Simulated assay, not measured.
Amino acid sequence: MLAAGRVYAMTCQPAFILHSRPYKESSALADFLTPQGRLRAVLRAARGRAGSPARPFVPLELELRGRGELKTVARLESSGIPYWLTGASLFAALYLNELLIRLLPAEDPHPPLFEHYALTLDALAGGRPLEPLLRAFEWRLLAELGYGFSLDRDRHGRPVHAGSLYRLLPDAGLEPVEQLQPGLFRGGELLAMGEADWQFPGALAAAKRLMRQALAPHLGGRPLVSRELFTTLKESSRD
């Protein structure tokens, strides 16, 4: 993690805007995802400026200046074609952004996570199936933050067996259980998740439940706005 009070050099780095909100008279306060982590900075005279690249899902080049956690944007330019996202793909990408804002500590570098995020946006824009992409990103985020766990070994180090039942202990890993109870996972589903074998019966639905259980302790009990919007969109599409 970067030391508090460090002066940022005017070094250009790739970035995406995760979220921005009005700040003072005409500026915006923006959260950026960069290889150096999530960075918060003031974007001066950002509101009402035609053609501004200061919007989500646009590859950017970013330069910052200042001390402490809150920086000032010195330069912000588009560095590529914006990812065209609509409907469910847009809500899925907003979900990724909200996860990163809620869970990724400020100024904690994760270059592989930045690359994975860009690849996921590209896949979403290309029309790839949403659920496998979301599960892969959630899994990568948990692993990068140090909350990952094995899918082929239980918390005692023993191999996961396809015919056995397991429950997730978020801080410890998979615990084998003998009796059927709510929220359990079959070993075959867990092994299929580890291989990203989404053709295995029930693996994709089980992966969604598993990731919700794994993420819940780190979200602090507050619901995800993007998840609620996504659910509303799916329900309205059935009407």
Rank of each mutant, 00 (worst) to 15 (best):
D152G: 05
E107K: 01
G221W: 03
P105D: 03
L43F: 12
I17A: 14
E77W: 07
L133S: 06
L119V: 02
L90Q: 01
E228A: 14
W198A: 07
V7C: 10
A92D: 05
L133Q: 13
D152V: 10
E138G: 06
A172I: 00
D31P: 04
R47V: 03
L215E: 06
L18K: 10
S27C: 12
W84I: 05
R209L: 10
Q181R: 15
A192S: 10
W84K: 12
D31Q: 12
R65W: 06
L90M: 09
G157P: 05
A74L: 08
S164P: 00
W139V: 00
T120W: 00
G194L: 02
Q213F: 03
D122F: 11
R153Q: 14
H161Q: 13
N97M: 04
L121K: 06
F137H: 09
R153K: 14
T72K: 11
T86R: 15
H110F: 12
V7R: 15
E115I: 02
V7W: 11
L33R: 02
L43M: 11
G173W: 00
R153I: 03
P53R: 11
E138C: 09
S150H: 07
A106H: 15
P105F: 03
R21L: 09
S20W: 02
G37W: 00
L29S: 13
E77Q: 13
S52Y: 07
L141M: 07
L33V: 07
V42T: 12
G68M: 08
R38E: 02
P35A: 13
F32R: 08
G87T: 03
R65C: 13
I101F: 00
R6A: 12
Y117F: 14
